[in-house]
Every structure is written in C-alpha cells, then in structure tokens.
C-alpha cells in the first residue's frame, strides 16, 4: 500500500491539480506544501495531526469538518489566532503555529492571568 499522504494518480480524477511547491514554517520548522491548497492539507501531507490544544482540558484537536464550519483546526497563522486552516490557502513563507487555548497572543494579559490562576 502507498503510505504517502498525497494521491499521485487517482483512478477517476487522474493526477491532482496542485499549485507550485512553496515553503512555510510550522512551529518554526520549514516545511513544503502546494501553493493555494488549504494550510491544513499541507500539514496533513507533512504528517502533522495536532493543530491546537483546547483551553479548558488542553486536549489536542485537528481537522474535523475540513470545510470551515467546526473551527477545530484553528491555528495561529502569521501571528493571527483562530485561523481556520482548512479553508485558508497556503502561501509562500507562511508562519503557522500550534494554537494553545483560544487567544494565545503573547501580549494577551487577561488570558495569561487566567491560565496562571491569578484572576
């Protein structure tokens, strides 16, 4: 069985139409994907399953609906949190990071204090 995540030739659809190869970073690590495909697909092809950890239970989440409805696959993309990676096209040089909780912005004081139990 073919173990790679990308379908090379499909019996009905033939060779998938994909954009050019571009590089992006995932938690600082350089990866490559196809331009224009959803960020989540590039991550899946690279074997990344965990997109975020939840706020309350700190549990991992990944792709669930893949059409932008469930919001389980949100990550921090180019510094902006809560980006639905399943409907966000991959672009050259994107900075994609695992999201922790709801608003992981470094400067978000309230969130940090809540996490520390100071409020």
């Amino acid at each position: 069985m073919d173990t790679s995540e990308r379908i090379a030739v499909h019996p009905i659809l033939g060779v998938p139409e994909k954009g050019r190869q571009v590089q992006f970073t995932y938690n600082g690590k350089t990866m490559s994907g196809c331009e224009g495909e959803p960020v989540a697909m590039a991550l899946k092809a690279a074997g990344v399953m965990v997109h975020r950890y939840t706020k309350k239970r700190h549990e991992p989440r990944g792709i669930f609906c893949a059409i932008g409805r469930c919001t389980d696959c949100v990550m921090v993309v180019d510094g902006v949190p809560n980006i639905r990676t399943c409907v966000t096209p991959l672009a050259e040089g994107m900075d994609v990071r695992t999201q922790d909780g709801v608003t992981p912005l470094a400067g978000d004081k309230a969130d940090k204090e809540e996490a520390d139990g100071t409020i």
Partner: peptide, 25 residues
C-alpha cells in the same frame, strides 16, 4: 471523538477528492 484523526465523512471527501490528500491509511 475529539482526537485528531476522527473526522466527518464530508471531511474525508474534501481531503481526497478536492485536495488529493489521503485522510488516513
């Protein structure tokens, strides 16, 4: 059911038939 790797059937179709990515082995 919240673990990554549990997906909707529509997600599987989207992944393989639109984007050429296998949802799993």
């Amino acid at each position: 059911w919240t673990l990554p790797g549990v997906i909707g059937a529509g997600a599987a179709q989207t992944m393989m038939n639109l984007h050429g990515i296998r949802p799993g082995s």
